[in-house]
Design a protein around this nucleic acid. Structure first.
Length: 151
DNA sequence: GCCAACGTTGGC
DNA sequence: GCCAACGTTGGC
């Protein structure tokens, strides 16, 4: 059982959208490191923190679960999608995505500012300089602490 | 809107 | 294979 943090811009897809849809494909990931986490490291049953990025305030706002292992990302082969990648074909797909399901919205979202202020989180990837991966592993220690602080 | 930090692309 | 130019991310 592993733990993750996944970023989404609320203007594009927010925790409220996620709650309404109950489940979705985590599509549109076009970064190899993030993709490899989905393909090689994620398993159904893993939990992830839903993070609102590029907004005010950036914060961890909810919880989800990986519900289906990685499979080719349909948006990569859809010419109408903004995530369309002509190099990725049905025969040789480049990009994959996992399916995720909604678990909960936190009563008390944990803002990036609060995470930075708390020395307990000083090793979290999220607060490392220059760290911009949209999918990151989270340690059990940090994950459990975040669940406590957000209740 | 600015810009630092990275990742990717493509000429050589 | 190097590296400059360009694009993207995302906090501020």
């Amino acid at each position: 059982m592993k733990y993750w943090l996944m970023k989404s811009e609320p203007d594009a897809y927010s925790i409220e959208d996620f709650k309404k849809e109950k489940a979705c494909l985590w599509d549109g990931i076009r970064n190899y490191q993030a993709r490899n986490f989905m393909i090689k490291e994620m398993s159904p049953g893993d939990s992830f923190l839903f993070y609102h990025s590029n907004c005010k305030p950036p914060a961890i706002v909810g919880l989800g679960e990986i519900s289906k292992q990685a499979a080719p990302d349909p948006t990569a082969q859809d010419p109408k999608s903004k995530y369309y990648d002509p190099k990725s074909t049905a025969e040789r797909p480049i990009w994959e995505c996992v399916q995720v399901k909604y678990k909960k919205t936190f009563k008390n979202p944990l803002s990036l500012t609060e995470i930075k202020e708390n020395l307990f989180f000083k090793d979290m990837l999220l607060v490392q300089r220059g760290q911009k991966l949209s999918i990151q592993p989270v340690s059990a220690k940090h994950f459990n602490k975040i669940l406590k602080l957000t209740e």
